Simulated scan of single mutants.
Amino acid sequence: MHSETQINSHELNNSPVLQRSPDKKSSPRALTLAASAGLLFLHLPMWIIFLYAFTTEQKSYQFPPPGLTLQWFAKAWAREDVWRALELSLQVALLSTLIAMVLGTLAAMALSRSRFFGRDVFSMLLVLPIALPGIITGLALRASYGTFDIPFSFWTIVIGHATFCIVVVYNNAVARLRRSSVNLLEASMDLGATNFQTFRYVVLPNLGTALLAGGMLAFALSFDEVIVTTFTAGQQTTLPIWMYQELIRPRDRPVTNVVAMVVVLITTLPILGAYYLTKDADSADGTGK
């Protein structure tokens, strides 16, 4: 019996199935090179913008830069038009995200838990705004505002941004609800919980990470939106529109690059924080933060 075990172990160790193929040694290296090339392709332009935020050249781009300086950060800090555009963009993004989280969550709960005629049509119509080109959405909103004599204002921008922010929150929420067990809701109701208590203590904790991810993405999309804003802002200037105008009529191009660095930081730091807060939130039902 002992000899048979030794023979079987020897056969298993020498089995060609368990032996590593000689081609597999080159695969990880090739994948690493491909991933590195992809990351370089995606992020090299951003690092070039960061580099030109420190250049001493004011009107044109030269590589390598003729010199490095910090003067453009002081000039960007002193520009009141930058602060006004930043404040408007933050207000629009925050309010659009709030509206999207409320309406997107309600739509996801209605369409994921109910069965009625035309449900798929409603679902398609909800996703349609983000599938359409931005210029189509902008033209449609501008025509609607003109038809009903709605003057351009802060709220026209918010409505325009909310149309596609709702889609992002809806997609995240409906995906999470479809993976959640209906038995949790039934158990909560059987134990005497009201509809609000079931939502507060069962549904919302399970939706927590999905709503956070959808809200972060909606905020990022609204904060850097240009096309829809162009058709709905009128004379108002958000930060992306300010950057676009500065590139068309350059006055201090490095200031635009400094503002671009600020935009990257505004959108990156909260995403990193959300990642570290929610990376272990799906380990068990009801643990969403």
Rank of each mutant, 00 (worst) to 15 (best):
T56F: 10
T69P: 08
N195Q: 09
L39K: 14
P205L: 09
V169Y: 15
A193I: 06
D280T: 07
S9T: 11
A53D: 02
G138V: 01
A107N: 12
M261A: 08
F117E: 11
A220F: 05
P133T: 07
F152L: 14
H2M: 12
G273H: 12
V259H: 00
P22Y: 02
F63E: 02
D285F: 05
L269Y: 00
T238N: 06
S181A: 10
N257H: 08
A284H: 08
T237Y: 04
T229E: 11
T147F: 15
G215L: 07
L103V: 15
A100I: 03
T56A: 13
L269V: 14
F223N: 05
T238C: 09
I48N: 03
I241E: 09
L33N: 04
S283H: 06
L42I: 15
P254M: 10
F219H: 00
R20F: 03
M243N: 00
V259T: 08
S123L: 05
Y275M: 13
S153G: 12
L95I: 15
L126C: 03
N183M: 13
I248F: 09
G118S: 06
A107Q: 11
I241T: 13
I227K: 11
S222T: 05
Y275L: 14
P64I: 11
R251P: 02
K24Y: 10
P22L: 09
N13H: 04
P240F: 03
P66Y: 13
A78M: 12
A74C: 04
A85E: 04
L141V: 09
I136R: 01
V167A: 05
S114F: 05
V202R: 00
M189D: 04
Q71C: 02
L141Y: 12
F154Y: 13
T194A: 02
S21D: 13
T278R: 06
M261Q: 08
S9Y: 01
D224M: 01
T267K: 13
R29C: 10
P66G: 09
A284M: 08
P22S: 15
G192A: 12
P240S: 09
T237A: 04
F164M: 06
L88G: 00
R29W: 13
V264N: 06
L103R: 01
L191D: 09
A193M: 11
N257G: 01
A74S: 14
L272N: 12
S36Y: 14
T267C: 15
R176H: 07
S144C: 10
Q19A: 05
L98F: 12
D280P: 04
A210Y: 00
L86N: 01
R84C: 03
L86K: 03
A34N: 04
R178H: 14
A85N: 02
